[in-house]
Design a protein around this nucleic acid. Structure first.
Lengths: 205, 205
DNA sequence: TCCATTACTGACTAGTGAGTCAGTAAGTAT
DNA sequence: ATACTTACTGACTCACTAGTCAGTAATGGA
């Protein structure tokens, strides 16, 4: 009796396929990725892939949903639950979190959002609502909490959480595009953090 | 006698075609742009386009070359020629320059480089050598000049010109991706500039 | 006015890849 | 064992587009 040609594993297929898709998109980008190739990576036929995902576009959306949202959940959970001071959260969990981003899976998806986003407005809205908006709100809450407690003085810095994110995005994009040119992304992010916190605390570094 | 079906205008065609291509790429991205559509926008047949540009890829490279490099030339020229102090250059010409970037043509090409760059290593090298590297060097030179003259104190900030660029890239990407969400990019860039200069001058803002 | 040159056209080809579907076999219940 | 359900396969189609090329007409020179 020959070994079975395939196993029926309904529950695990979708995740296996989205993982394969992430790897393929990361290598080639969305447009250049062949659905056939994703299926082969997942060890599955193209027909089966189309059973789980109606179109290539749906597959793309599923990838974003399943890999990015959990990461932002981590961050907001930390901010909401922690007993630490704002500065301690920024220098501890926040810094640890953002410095892992350049070079991670998530950074690849950020490239995809930049590249393909405009073609999929509803995906962009989903991404805005579930990732960007939540992340910025969380950060903003952290800064306001610091201001309310007297830890930080109010200033244009404490009103612009984007300043904390800018060097992170810069690092992500720089690493993605110019891999070979080395950039000390940790140092860049840390210097900016020092600078911002010093300013908010009202003394020079 | 009917009006002529077309005019022979050898000299102007390439520029007209690259302009049409920029517009098309801006709307749809590289992969989704049809060569036929670029030709029609330029008021030209596809055959003629292929007379001037061997492949779609060559067309893309020509677009990058002709729209980005001149902008960086402007900046380096200012830095090299100006008699102003480093701070005055940063707050004057540099600030004026970078705040025009979000929302400009160039920002669209930055999206294309992020999205398509990895597929075209030679284009990436060209872009690195002619744009990024030159821009960063120029900025670095400006900072070092400030340090040498005693205008700035040496610090981790004066060694990381990237910090001056990070909010600019952030603004560009943010505006491109989430057009509808408003972001005061001028304020973001200016706050960062204040912060960095204050730090380098050794007093708090 | 005629000729030579070449900028330019547009119909065509060849290749590709997203999505389909009729059939097959793994698992399950009886 | 047998019948039944459905996860799964893979060959096929159909639409689409980069790139070609034989032919056409605008121009300039004699």
């Amino acid at each position: 009796m020959p070994p079975p040609r395939f196993r029926r594993r309904k529950e695990k297929r979708p995740q296996e396929i989205t993982e394969a898709a992430l790897a393929a998109f990361a290598e080639k980008g969305y447009a250049a990725t062949r659905v056939d190739d994703v299926a082969r990576r997942a060890g599955v036929s193209k027909g089966l892939l189309y059973l789980y995902f109606k179109t290539k576009e749906e597959l793309f959306k599923a990838v974003v949903r399943s890999f990015v949202v959990p990461r932002i959940d981590e961050l907001t959970a930390i901010v909401d639950a922690s007993e630490l001071s704002s500065e301690e959260i920024l220098r501890g969990p926040f810094y640890d979190f953002v410095k892992t981003l350049p070079g991670s899976n998530v950074s690849i998806l950020i490239r995809l959002m930049i590249a393909e986003g405009p073609k999929y407005p509803d995906l962009l809205k989903f991404y805005w609502d579930n990732v960007v908006s939540r992340g910025l709100s969380s950060l903003n809450e952290l800064l306001q909490r610091g201001v309310r407690s007297g830890e930080f003085r109010p200033s244009s810095v404490s009103e612009q959480p984007h300043l904390f994110v800018a060097p992170v995005l810069f690092s992500i994009v720089f690493k993605l595009v110019f891999e070979k040119q080395s950039l000390d992304t940790d140092r860049l992010i840390e210097t900016q953090l020092d600078l911002l916190i010093s300013h908010m605390k009202g003394y020079k570094a």
